[in-house]
């Protein structure tokens, strides 16, 4: 296997990225000179106060917002728009209500004009993995909130992207379903080499899922602190009940409290 240049080993790189929204009467500075790198296969969680600019950051990574300054690199190339190898999950599932679960999962293939037959196996496999087998033909309104987010996970993964961006994907769910969804993601990540940026308000989710946690400052968002999660993979959901896990969570809570002050 040829050795990849170091640059390309990064899934995505923020280089002094800033974002100002041209609001009136005063422009709104949402993101202030953010620099960080997500390596191939690395799962990065972002924690931060509400309204600090996390979603803005993620939307820039998705190619849906243009940075006001700085540079974004995706696989060593400047990012200019939505990337074919990036999967995105939003806060609500945003399934199209007139499509079946299967058609929703296949939606990215439809948009990229990839023949259905080519991705059908992958779609069915994902649907099985997240526990939606038997609901392929159901419409979104026939699903529970958790099931809808499961379908949204499948949609984000169906084209086998190498980077997944998730903006508080489980925040609309109840606490129990939410933990369950965390376990689904953890399970999915045991077998992949995908990179991820995961915005969340849940410290437990961040520590359980991520290799590295970035704590953002208040608006305008900058990376205030960075913590490498000291637990090896594969991780089991039971890890969250351990004392070491509790210690890391407590530490992060302290860091966040200091940032909010």
């Amino acid at each position: 296997m040829p050795e990849a240049p170091t640059l390309v080993a990064d899934a995505i790189r923020f280089d002094a990225v800033g974002k100002t929204f041209p609001t009136r009467p005063v422009p709104l500075r949402a993101v202030e000179s953010v620099s960080f790198t997500v390596r191939r296969g690395e799962f990065v969680a972002i924690l931060g106060p509400s309204g600090c600019g996390k979603s803005t950051l993620l939307m820039m990574a998705a190619g849906l917002e243009v940075p006001s300054e700085g540079r974004l690199e995706r696989g060593g190339v400047e990012l200019v728009g939505p990337h074919r190898q990036t999967g995105v999950m939003f806060q609500d599932a945003t399934l199209l209500p007139w499509l079946s679960v299967l058609d929703n999962v296949l939606f990215p293939a439809t948009i990229r004009r990839i023949p259905r037959a080519k991705v059908l196996d992958q779609a069915m496999r994902l649907i099985g993995t997240v526990g939606l087998k038997g609901f392929e033909g159901a419409r979104p309104h026939e699903l529970s909130g958790g099931m809808r987010q499961r379908a949204a996970i499948c949609r984000a993964l169906v084209l086998d992207p190498d980077l997944i961006l998730m903006d508080e994907p489980f925040s609309a769910l109840d606490a129990i379903t939410r933990d369950e969804m965390g376990d689904v993601l953890l399970d999915l990540w045991q077998h992949t080499q995908k990179s991820a940026i995961f915005v969340t308000h849940s410290i437990r989710e961040a520590v359980l899922l991520a290799d590295r946690v970035l704590v953002m400052s208040r608006r305008p968002a900058t990376v205030a602190e960075e913590l490498v999660v000291p637990f090896p993979r594969p991780r089991a959901p039971a890890l969250a009940d351990s004392a070491e896990f509790g210690a890391v969570v407590a530490h992060l809570r302290g860091v966040i409290a200091r940032n909010m002050a």
Binding site: A62, P82, R84, T86, F107, R112
Partner: peptide
Amino acid sequence: ADPNQLRMCRAAGGNAWQAFWHVRLP
């Protein structure tokens, strides 16, 4: 059309025409 659905379509790589056909028209 739901702005979130339109954004989802754009994130998947959809252009204005595809957003029209797959989100706005339904």
